[in-house]
Amino acid sequence: MLYIVNVRYLLHTAMSEIQSKLKDYRQRLDITQEELAQRLGVTRQTIIALEQAKYQPSLELAWRCSKLFGVPIEDVFSFIN
C-alpha cells in the first residue's frame, strides 16, 4: 500500500525541513542502529537516513519511535518551515 506514493506527499515534504533527535534517544537506550531498526520494523538504512534527517518518516513510523522512547513525537521529530 505504501508502494504508491502520492505526489502531494512529495510536494508536502518539499515544503519543510525535518530535525531529528533519533540518534540521541537511541544512544540513551544504548542500542545499535540494527537493533533499533529491528524494533521499529524497518531497515538499518532507514535508521541512518532518519538520524541524518535525510528522510521524513510517516506518521506511523514517527509514532512507533515516540512510543519506543516514551516521549511525544515532537520531541523526536520536529519540522522547520
Binding site: 505504501l2 504508491i4 531497515t43 532507514t46
Partner: peptide, 13 residues
C-alpha cells in the same frame, strides 16, 4: 520488494 516505507518511497520515485 520494498522492505519498509523509505524503500517504497524511493522505489516509487
Amino acid at each position: 520488494e520494498p522492505a519498509d516505507e523509505r524503500e517504497a518511497l524511493i522505489l516509487s520515485i
